[in-house]
Design a protein around this nucleic acid. Sequence first.
RNA 1: GGCGACGUGGCCGAGUGGUUUAGGCAACGGCCUGCAAAGCCGUCUACCCGGGUUCGAUUCCCGGCGUCGCCUCCA
Length: 456
Amino acid sequence: MLHLYDTATRSVRELALREPGKVSIYLCGPTVYGPAHLGHGRATLTYDILRRYLEWTGLDVRLVSNVTDIEDKIIERATREDRPWDEITTECEAMWFRAMDGIGVQRPTDIPHATEYVKQMIELIGALIERDAAYVTDDGVYMDVESVDDYGALAFQSLEDMRAGGGDRMVVGAAQKRHPADFVLWKFTHCEPTASDPSWPSPWGAGRPGWHSECVVMSLDLLGEGFDLHCGGQDLRFPHHENERAQAVALGKTFAHHWMHNGFVVDAEGEKMSKSIGNVSNLLDLIEHYDPRAYRLVLLQSHYRSPVKMGQAGIDQAVASLAGLDAFASRAAAVAIGDSDPAVIAAFRAAMEDDLDTPKAMALVFDTVRAANSAIDAGEAAAGSLVGAVMEICSAFGLELSAGGSDASDDVLAKASALDQARADRDYVAADAIRSELQADGWNVETTKDGTTVRR
RNA sequence: GGCGACGUGGCCGAGUGGUUUAGGCAACGGCCUGCAAAGCCGUCUACCCGGGUUCGAUUCCCGGCGUCGCCUCCA
């Protein structure tokens, strides 16, 4: 069974399943007010790889990932551009899924929206007030973090330490907050609602829900108490996940059993990609200019918890590496694929079960490719099962290899034949000319004694 | 100020108390080829610094230095 690092216990432990054969996962999704960036790509690819792996092992995976379509950033943008807020969220959500399609991330099984859960969030907030875990101030309803005994479990810091270590940081939020860490559950709308600034009625006054409530409500509604795994980027660990957990705990509900957080994407200088620094790269730009598989490969070759450096050089290396894998797929197309080599598959599984050791698994893929190439060269029967193992692993990773050539036009194929004819005639000047011509058109040309193959 | 992560060869990036030790990219040599390409074989650069533990440390401990993150919206 899969062993995964659990943020809450800070240890690698078995991912226990609530129901045998089924995995329930909640992944915090995007706030839709702008384009998806590299950081979003890393998170979604990480969990896409996890999901595909789990499915490959035969588990029934339910992956719930929300869309946050109520949020200050959305309202700010709508107000600035004088547009209806939901025009922005609709547009950005469509853009988000275009990016996800582009990098080959499968759709979650459920995609709840915050706007669909306002009523339930109000119920949740009401229950928290009833239990004396939340209180009303002039500008909203706040969660009383001191009502939660183990608040700080994901921050690895007690409330006292947080306050003591606060240094000269400003306390953000209302002056009426009981504790600096108390967070907003409901924000009152003080002005008249506009098309850019949505508002919902509540028992405490018109307003909108705070960010931390939606994920609690949606995860518990769709997955139920004690679901298996809650995941997201490192930056969500605190305060977002801590605060989600606090609400569930305050209500006496069992929340996620296991917490998984992926590392950041950093730029070439090692700095985190962040909107405020302005070094964010748009995911759609990336996949427009490069092979979208390159990003997946970069991530597969590093551990999900490590920071990943994303720069020109890294992408170029991955592209070169993919060329090798595609070349393999091309020559492997001529081999009768057999049952995947059991030793390779066992090694793959062992690597993955150990906290998703995809770097080790990729090393295994490259080793197996080499072994398969040698077997093909030697005409050995083992080639088929080695090829099969490589294909099976790549498929479990969502890494599609391209055997190429299928999009070659008749014209290109005619040139390939002409090249073979010229070589047969020992007219190497003509042969080289044809090859150069094809290469200039972007084809990889391989002339062998069995004839010429062309690939993109 | 508190909490946390990290510092590996030309580059990216795993891993480990010693024995052969990732893997990728790049470079170089060889085989193959009409020449290339692809493929195969081989070579080359490593574990931030100072102490300690140990028969032995890149790996464990302590202390530096450096980089980064969280503590505030952020995948």
